[in-house]
């Protein structure tokens, strides 16, 4: 073999090197049986939510229950969940409002002080909103102190003892779900009633909903009614283009819903 590498040899060696470099370190790691078991067990639950906008009647019982259950001051203009009303008229205009986060429901046809005659309405509906518990939560990425995080079951939580109240996460959430808690002086958000779901109950909003427009379930259980809807029905998510991978799925989502 000559000192100079031939063109053929050079390409062959380069290919071999590329192939070896492409093997990730993880592929060479052998898990102990215990480790493998633990890795599977940890991923047994992934909480997800389905909102059926056809069923929502805008009563606001979900908002009332949420505020009481989670100690969000009842009269403060903040809420972990809210309901939006959309009224689309014949001229194509979209009228939307959420008076007081719909805490007292929608009791009047007036939207921002304006009555829209029934004959002008082409479609009108209610859309409940809550934290999407994103698979890629932007609010968690921006936290400078590690006070907000994604629990192994997918729920994004805030550590109240660790939050410094800088508000980065409130800015980062594309869904406007986070707010500053007026009493605890920390970032606050919907956490799927973590104290309820972790003991087998449903969230306060799901229980309070008279029509079954809200559903919570384990997306990793193929027999869960919520999983079945997500897999078998035509569901949409909010602001898919942000790449946050929201885990709240909407049935009957309209293009006018933001």
């Amino acid at each position: 073999m000559s000192d100079n590498c031939s063109r053929r040899e050079f390409f062959a060696n380069a290919l071999k090197l590329a192939a070896v470099a492409a093997i990730p370190v993880g592929a060479l790691k052998i898990l102990e049986p215990g480790e493998a078991k633990a890795a599977i067990a940890k991923t047994g639950v992934r909480w997800g939510f389905v909102v059926d906008t056809h069923k929502c009647i805008g009563c606001g019982f979900c908002v009332k229950a949420c505020k009481n259950e989670n100690e969000v001051m009842y009269d403060a203009p903040v809420s972990r969940t809210w309901v939006e009303r959309y009224v689309v008229t014949k001229d194509g205009e979209v009228h939307a409002d959420t008076p007081n986060a719909a805490r007292d429901g929608f009791t009047t046809p007036k939207i921002h002080g304006q009555v829209i005659p029934d004959s002008e309405i082409t479609k009108a509906f209610f859309v409940p909103k809550l934290c999407n518990q994103c698979e890629n939560p932007p609010c968690v990425q921006v936290c400078p102190v590690g006070a907000t995080y994604q629990a192994p079951d997918g729920v994004v939580l805030v550590d109240r003892t660790w939050c410094i109240g800088c508000g980065y996460c409130i800015m980062a959430c594309p869904y406007g779900v986070r707010f500053f808690h007026p009493q605890f002086k920390v970032a606050e958000k919907c956490n799927f009633c973590y104290h309820r779901i972790s003991q087998g109950m449903k969230t306060a909003c799901v229980d309070a909903c008279p029509t079954g427009a809200r559903m919570i379930g384990n997306l990793k259980d193929p027999n869960d009614p919520v999983t079945k809807i997500v897999l078998n029905e035509r569901v949409g998510v909010l602001k898919d283009e942000y790449g946050t991978k929201p885990q709240v799925f909407y049935l009957g989502l309209d293009k006018n819903v933001r």
Partner: peptide
């Protein structure tokens, strides 16, 4: 509330 496309109607 006479809202078509919503159960409220």
């Amino acid at each position: 509330l006479n809202y078509p496309s919503s159960r409220r109607g």
